[in-house]
Structures are given as C-alpha cells and as structure tokens.
C-alpha cells in the first residue's frame, strides 16, 4: 500500500470549522432584517404585546411545519394538514360537547377531547403514510385525496355551518391559548418544546438519520438495511401528531370549527419549511430553519398590519414573493459554493 502519498490533504479537515455557513444563517439574517424593518415602520412592533402576538400566531403554523420538516426531509409531502386540522378541531368539539351532558364542563372533558385529538392525529398520519408506502402511490396524490376527505368530513359534521364549543368547556379550556407561564404564552412554550424535540429527533437520533438517507436516495437506504416504509410512515405519523398539537392550542382560541378552518395551512407550513432551507426534494432538513420560516411568515402579516404603505389584503402576495426570493437566494448561494 502506498505510504508515499498518503492523504496529505487530510490536514485540511480542520479548515471547515472556520467557514461561516451562510446557507444556514440565511433565514436568521432575513428574520433580523424583517424585525429591523418592522421597528423602522412602527416602534410598537418591538413592544412585548406585539412580539408575543407574533410568536403565538406563529406557533400554529410552526408546530405543523416542524412535522412537515420530517415528511419533506424523507422525500414525502403532506398536503392534507390544513384539512386534517379542521377535521380534528371539529371532532374535538363534537366529542367535548357530547361529554358535557355526562361529565359536565370540567377538566376531564377537555382531557378526553385532547386525547381524541392526539389519537385522530396519529391515525390520520398513519393513513397517509401507509397508503402511500404500502399502496405505492405518490404521497402528493394520497394526501391530495385525504385533503378532500378530511375537509368534507368537517363540513359534514358541521352540517355545512359552524361547530361551536360549549361555553362552559370554553372557560375551562381557555388558558391553553390565552394563559402564560412566566409571561410566555402557552402556545409559544409548546412551539418551543416541539421544536426542541423535533431538532433532537431529526439531528441526533438514528430515526432522523434514516429520514435524511431515505430523502436523498431511497435505493441506498434500502440497501443499507433501513425499513424504508416504516420510517416514511412514521414521518407522517409525526406530522399528524404535530397537527393534533396545533389543533389542541387552536380550538380554545376561536372555540369553533367550520369548513373554512385551516384553509391553506398546508401551503403555509410547506412554505415555512422551504424558507427555512429544507430541500423540497428531500435529503436535507433543518428544524430551526423551519421555526424561523414560520415566524417570518407571521411577521410579514404583522408588519403589513402596522403600516399603510401596502394594503393588508396583499399579505399573501408579499408572503409569496418572500418564499420565491428565499428559495432563489438559497440556490444562488449553493451554486456559488459549488463552482468556487
């Protein structure tokens, strides 16, 4: 074996720690930019009330988007999350309203509602996952189908109208959305906990590693003794669980569910994931990027509320523009690195 020219270049292995990863920092820098812009437009932007408002609203999309990060990293997609959220909200309300008659409007009723939500989330995710893996149908098609199914189920349950939560239960349930711990709103705490758990799961465990592997090349994953179908199904279950958590926080906010609940949430969640730097084709995902992406999307809406320069009705247009620009910048960065 040649000892002559053995691996002289291995000296360079330390050099990478000096490189600042601009690709990873990009979303953070953009968020800082947005915050500076917001403050310049209106000083009230940085008030604790406004910030807490931004983070609380970001929590819904953010929690769902953390789940979406797993699905997308493993090369899948879930279009059904918005409908799933509406369906789970509706089912929770129906269950809790029914229980009022027997259990009364107490904590037990809410807990059972929460349990139902979690079970439904897991089941809905498992259906998406199993049908796409075992049935060998594109996830895009499967979740497009379940998107329609969950949406029409909630419309059916509400008989075309609105399902309203019993007022007594609403009083008991209220602190989940409006309460706080040490001044931090509960939804923000849950969002943070989900993000930390998601980060650990995606980046530090064998399961997360397998998601990356499957997303980058399913064939290689299969030849590496990975249970590809099982791991992929689990990503959809995680997604369902995240939707259920977001719903549990969402229901006390409005106290109702209708066919228009959660409309377009799937696109906002996917947008948050992509802005955060996760690759839509799979193989690379970043939880913190997703968190920042969700906060960015909410911040844009918030800034538009604080200024008269652009109509609030153009919120969607500005968000769309930001998504495209964010992805363009990421790709530009990647190209430059590659051809250096």
């Amino acid at each position: 074996m040649s000892s002559l020219e053995r691996n002289e270049a291995s000296i360079s292995k330390t050099s990478s720690s000096f490189n600042i990863d601009f690709k990873a920092l990009g979303p953070f820098l953009a968020l800082v930019g947005l915050f500076i812009l917001g403050t310049a437009i209106n000083e009230a932007f940085l008030s604790s009330g406004n910030l807490s408002n931004i983070f609380t609203r970001a929590a819904f999309i953010g929690i769902i988007a953390v789940g979406a990060t797993f699905v997308i990293t493993a090369g899948g997609i879930d279009l059904s999350v918005g409908s799933m959220a509406a369906f789970i909200s509706g089912a929770m309300i129906v269950v809790m309203n029914t229980l009022v008659a027997t259990l009364g409007a107490g904590v037990e009723t809410v807990l059972i509602g929460v349990l139902v939500s979690i079970l439904l989330g897991i089941a809905a995710g498992a259906i998406n996952g199993l049908v796409s893996t075992k049935g060998k149908i594109e996830a895009f098609i499967v979740t497009l189908g379940t998107m329609g199914i969950y949406r029409s189920l909630v419309t059916y349950m509400a008989d075309g109208g609105t399902l309203s939560l019993d007022f007594g239960v609403r009083g008991v349930y209220r602190p989940i959305y409006y309460g706080d711990v040490l001044g931090i709103p509960v939804p923000v705490l849950v969002f943070f906990a989900v993000a930390v758990a998601g980060y650990v799961l995606l980046n530090m465990t064998p399961f997360g590693r397998k998601c990356f592997a499957i997303g980058s090349n399913e064939q290689v994953a299969r030849y590496s003794a990975i249970h590809v179908d099982r791991v992929k199904t689990l990503t959809y279950v995680i997604q369902g669980l995240c939707v259920s958590l977001a719903t549990i926080i969402y229901v006390p906010r409005l106290g109702s569910a209708s066919s228009s609940t959660g409309v377009l949430w799937e696109l906002e969640a996917i947008a948050a994931v992509i802005i955060g730097g996760t690759m839509l084709k799979g193989g690379y995902g970043r939880i913190w990027g997703t968190v920042v992406g969700a906060i960015m999307l909410t911040t844009i809406g918030n800034i538009l509320n604080l200024t008269d320069a652009i109509s609030n009705y153009l919120n969607g247009a500005v968000q769309g523009l930001i998504i495209i620009v964010a992805v363009f910048l990421q790709r530009g960065d990647w190209r430059r690195k590659k051809s250096k």
């Binding site: 064998p206 397998k210 990356f212 592997a213 980058s216 090349n217 290689v220 030849y223 590496s224 193989g283």
Partner: peptide, 28 residues
Amino acid sequence: KGSGLLLNMEMRPNLTLLALEKFGRVII
C-alpha cells in the same frame, strides 16, 4: 452510486448508515 452511497452527503453518515444501531439506539 445508485444503491451504495448517499452522494449528496459527507463520509461520516455514509460510513455508519448500515450499522447505525452500533452508534447509539436513542442518540447517535
């Protein structure tokens, strides 16, 4: 290239992919 290695990743995850449980069942 098609079924052996994850070409878009570095060496470390590629090396340990087949024997991942050896590097920790809960946390890698």
